Amino acid sequence: GQIMAGFMAASLISVLVGSILAERFGVRRIFFFGAILSAVGIAGHLAAQGFATILLSRSLTGFGYGLVYAAAQIYINQHAKLDRRSSGFSVFFAVIVSAEICGPALGGVLADRLGLASALVAATVVAAISAVLCMLFISRLVPELTDASGTPENAAEQDAEGQIEGHAPSLRWDAFRTVLLNPRFMVAMVCFAIPSKALLTGGLFLLMPLAVVGSGGSASDSARVIMAYGIAILLLAPIMSPLADRWRKFHLWVAVGCCIAGIGLVLPHTWDTLGQGGLIVLMVATLLFGVGQTLSIPAQISYLMQVSEKRSSETSAGAVLGTFRFIERLGSLFGPLVASGLLLASTPEEALMLMGIAAVLLMACGLGWYLAFGDEEEGDAIRALLFET
């Protein structure tokens, strides 16, 4: 547990730091250093002699992972056309989910067939190769996408590494303060982003396997049920994200997605009450949850960028994305804690239902806030309501 906490804490910090550094020094450099740090951290497990060295190696791997994650977000934001931003982040989301499905499976097979040391060597080599590929194929040039139809091919470009002083934003930590003082951003984080991650880690990854076992399933059945989540994302992401970019009501995409995900987790207890529970119901619930996450998560980033840019045209994308990922990961930490607390007084199905209902209620609050104020500043909208009606 402490080793996993070290990985998560390191990645939490590096996502925040890496988002600003990627804007300051260029995504290619941050990609490279992140991949190298991950490779060194993985290799460190081979020489680890005790708990302290394992914790250090795992934390170093997590820090590198966070840098790569942050650089990928900045790269997409810099290179995707404004009317394709959701599609870009949707591809990123689908790739991350694919890696989360394939990575443990491949690592387990290698460790079982060749031994743990061989699996670690293979992971180190892959991380090192990715660092080399970053330097070879990621361009130093950043397109200046001045409108929704701008593309990297026809837009003016700037050298993100060679002309840092003249073009890249300075490393100003007050950019995070500007983001945190944006009420609409924080409402979206509390009502949409944190519940989404809490449902994923606490609901799907913790409670759903317990519900499968409670319904008579095995560990392999749990894996099959959870795999339905990844399948839903991989199948629907290429379809839904272009629709979100075409119909740019990002707040509705996020709200509907959160609602569907919450309803998916309410489903097992509801059907169990009707005497129709079982593995099929849990599979359907997981598919619904995956559909909801596919609708909401890629659109969340576009929505947060939209509300931040309306608040201030000079808002740093690195600060927005870094703050988003930092706070979102707090939801990943809270999810298992909330789920464990609910299990003290309820069954897994009941705990899933309670978490799903809470997510739907928070979604309603977040959507209501946006519908109440629209694109106006909150203070202006309140004054208009008090003095003009």
Rank of each mutant, 00 (worst) to 15 (best):
G203M: 01
D221L: 06
P242L: 11
S215H: 04
F250S: 15
I263V: 10
G217I: 06
V266Y: 02
A261E: 00
P268N: 07
V266S: 13
L206G: 10
V213D: 12
L207A: 09
F192C: 05
E165R: 04
V212T: 12
A223H: 04
G230N: 02
R184T: 10
A261Q: 00
A228D: 05
W247E: 12
L206M: 09
D245S: 06
S220E: 11
F185M: 06
V179W: 00
L204A: 14
E165V: 15
F176H: 12
R172A: 15
C258M: 06
L265I: 04
G166I: 07
C191E: 04
S241W: 01
R246V: 14
C191Q: 02
Y229W: 02
P242E: 08
A198W: 01
P183F: 11
F205N: 11
F250V: 13
V179S: 01
L180F: 11
A193M: 11
V225H: 02
G262Q: 00
A168I: 03
F250G: 15
D221S: 11
A223L: 11
A232V: 00
L265T: 03
W173K: 06
P209A: 13
F185R: 00
S218Y: 02
V225Q: 01
G262C: 03
L265W: 02
I164T: 14
G203W: 00
R248F: 13
S218H: 03
S170Y: 08
G203C: 00
V225I: 11
G264M: 01
A175W: 03
A261V: 00
L235Q: 04
C191P: 02
M189Q: 08
R246G: 13
I164N: 14
W247K: 08
A244C: 07
V190W: 12
S196V: 07
P169V: 05
A255H: 00
W247F: 15
N182F: 04
A188L: 07
L210I: 07
W173C: 11
G217Y: 00
G214M: 05
A244P: 03
V187S: 13
L252S: 10
C259A: 15
V213M: 13
E165N: 11
D174Q: 10
T270R: 01
S220H: 08
W253H: 04
I263D: 01
F250T: 13
R224A: 15
R246C: 12
A232Q: 00
A211S: 09
G162P: 00
G257C: 01
V213A: 14
H167L: 14
W253N: 05
V212L: 08
M208I: 06
P268E: 05
F176W: 08
L235A: 12
G230L: 04
F250L: 14
H269P: 03
L207H: 02
V256P: 01
D245L: 10
R172D: 14
I226D: 09
V212D: 08
S196L: 09
T270A: 13
P238G: 14
M208E: 05
L267Q: 01
G230V: 01
